[in-house]
Design a binder for these strands. Structure first.
Lengths: 144, 144
DNA sequence: TCATATTGTGAAGTTACTACATGATGTAGA
DNA sequence: TCTACATCATGTAGTAACTTCACAATATGA
């Protein structure tokens, strides 16, 4: 059976997930922890902020940060003004990992689009943009 | 910041995942259970077969099937020839859900590609095919 | 100052996974 | 036919990512 367009898109999703999961694993990370680290690239933030950024409960962030503290990627610091809050920041090791992630981001461009002409890539991006637009609308309408 | 091509692709992944997760949730399913049900569309199979199809350990299948038996989507039957094995099959309720999933698959085509001309869709699919090819190669090379 | 909201975490529970061990059964060979 | 070996499902035990609920400490606004 030749794959449908939806098949193709779902395979893309599947392959990308697998690729990223393997890449994270190489750094001793899980997807959730890698995601958290990614948010910390731009500087220390509050756990509450992380919860909002990752779309999970604050309680869950406590656990993820615990793990990343144990693995040496992250430290908890006193928030400069709010004594209730904690600032989570990257350690040098954490910074090394996020730097590698940024590089991997660039590599991914080459892997995905390296074989395409500028013209073809531009057309692909335009179409993708329209697809994303419809998908966003659908999510908004269907699930609020 | 305007999104990069990689950003666009990753947003697609993220939105599709969210959309599917929400859709499964509406049927009282998780992603793992929905995936298992999907495999059962074509008729009863062995738990071992499910393990290979989902790429997880047989032990994990035992747990997933337990859950789906409890929720009434699936039954365990005696394997017709191999007394070691179990045949897992859809209940009428399970069939109803997989039928709905098939329909959702068709809906997804409309959501994603409804606004595209035949020409544009064909070009998109060609590009996607080349992207998938490179991605497959990279997965193979990098991770075996 | 006093009521109310917010931050992070303990306690308890669910789901999806893993590895390892084991009993029951299938299968191929001497 | 008996014996070795492989295979199927599952018990046990453990991890990671999540949830809700309760609570103590702290901020904030009237």
């Amino acid at each position: 059976m030749t794959p449908t367009a939806v098949d193709q898109v779902l395979e893309l999703v599947s392959l990308l997930q697998r690729d990223m999961a393997l890449s994270f694993e190489r750094d001793g990370l899980t997807e959730a922890r890698a995601h958290l680290l990614w948010v910390l690239r731009d500087g220390p933030v509050t756990q509450r902020h992380l919860a909002d950024a990752l779309g999970v409960t604050p309680r869950n962030i406590t656990g993820l940060v615990d793990g990343l503290v144990d693995s040496g990627h992250v430290v908890r610091r006193r928030h400069p003004t709010d004594r209730r809050a904690t600032h989570v920041d990257l350690t040098p090791e954490g910074r090394r990992v996020t730097d590698a992630m940024v590089e991997g981001y660039a590599d991914m461009h080459d892997v995905l689009f390296g074989g395409l002409s500028a013209r073809q890539l531009a057309a692909f991006r335009r179409t993708l943009d329209s697809v994303l637009g419809r998908l966003r609308v659908r999510l908004e309408e269907e699930w609020g």
